[in-house]
């Protein structure tokens, strides 16, 4: 991992992320007994959004989403060039903050509630992500992504609890059921469209592209758990994604209290036990 993989991320992630999104819609449709849209549907959607009129409530709301996109790209670029995992998490949180601020700025009741829920979602996934970083450090002795990838064994054997906690919060990041509270791709009739209600045209296209970057980055974290072998890593990342889609189609949305509570409980119990185990192992 070096600066070139980071640059490759900047250019390839939107293509790959769009494909992931298309794959997602296709598989979801199949799980529901439908044929589903073409694989390239997300690209058509964004292409269309670029041709539409851009309605705004406030001119500045677009700026926040531009920051969101830039910070997501930065996050992924640091991650894929093998940088510091803590810095990555920090940049990722910043990106999320700008996304939520954009929702607040649009100041419609729907996007306002969506933004509040986005903040709650961020609170829900932070502990699991932080603990995962700590666990990876305890095993490999480094916060550098490059060193974590270079570790000879798959990390999953040492970090099963943290992996569970990570998988549990994955639906939040992919905006999937049961934790698709802020905005979702499937329930098209709730809270209008949550945080993205007031965004249309080019700005919405921008948000979609940012989500594609986000997808690849989050799958990249999943890859870290199996990183000792490239093929094992890629196959397992696909398996994780498939499982996520099954969960998405098999569950209903929960209230935010349940999301926050369960995400923290799983992170603290499964992740906490895992960390205690690592301490004993060292001790």
């Amino acid at each position: 991992m070096n600066i070139f993989t980071g640059i490759a991320f900047v250019f390839l992630a939107p293509l790959l992320g769009g494909l992931v999104a298309g794959f997602d819609r296709k598989i979801s449709a199949r799980l529901q007994g439908r044929i589903g849209p073409p694989l390239f549907q997300p690209f058509y959607d964004v292409g269309k959004l670029l041709q539409k009129e851009n309605l705004v409530v406030r001119k500045s709301q677009r700026l926040y989403m531009e920051f969101f996109l830039v910070l997501i790209i930065l996050t992924g670029a640091i991650f894929f060039s093998g940088g510091d995992l803590l810095l990555v998490i920090f940049a990722f949180t910043m990106a999320g903050v700008f996304f939520a601020l954009g929702g607040y700025k649009a100041s419609s009741p729907y996007s306002f509630i969506g933004a509040q829920r986005e903040v709650l979602q961020m609170m829900s996934y932070e502990p699991a992500v932080m603990l995962a970083a700590v666990g990876m450090y305890m095993v490999t002795g480094s916060f550098q992504v490059a060193d974590i990838v270079a570790y000879p064994q798959p990390l999953i054997f040492k970090l099963p609890g943290l992996f569970l906690a990570f998988f549990f919060i994955l639906p939040i990041k992919f905006r999937k059921s049961p934790f698709d509270l802020a905005t979702s791709h499937h329930a098209h009739q709730e809270l209008v469209k949550g945080i993205t209600t007031e965004f249309s045209g080019r700005t919405l296209a921008l948000i979609e592209i940012a989500h594609w970057y986000e997808y690849i980055f989050v799958l990249g974290i999943g890859y870290l758990f199996f990183a000792s072998n490239v093929w094992l890593g890629l196959v397992m990342t696909l398996v994780i994604f498939e499982l996520l889609l099954v969960v998405d189609n098999a569950t209903a949305r929960v209230r935010w209290q349940a999301m926050l509570g369960s995400a923290w409980v799983v992170a603290l119990i499964a992740g906490g036990l895992n960390i205690i185990y690592l301490m004993l192992l060292r001790g």
Partner: peptide
């Protein structure tokens, strides 16, 4: 499933600002 208009990219959105 029987007619599945999403085959043609049709999405039923609840938001006029996203609709065509």
């Amino acid at each position: 499933p029987r007619f599945d208009v999403e085959r043609f990219g049709v999405v039923n959105t609840g938001n006029p600002k996203h609709a065509d």
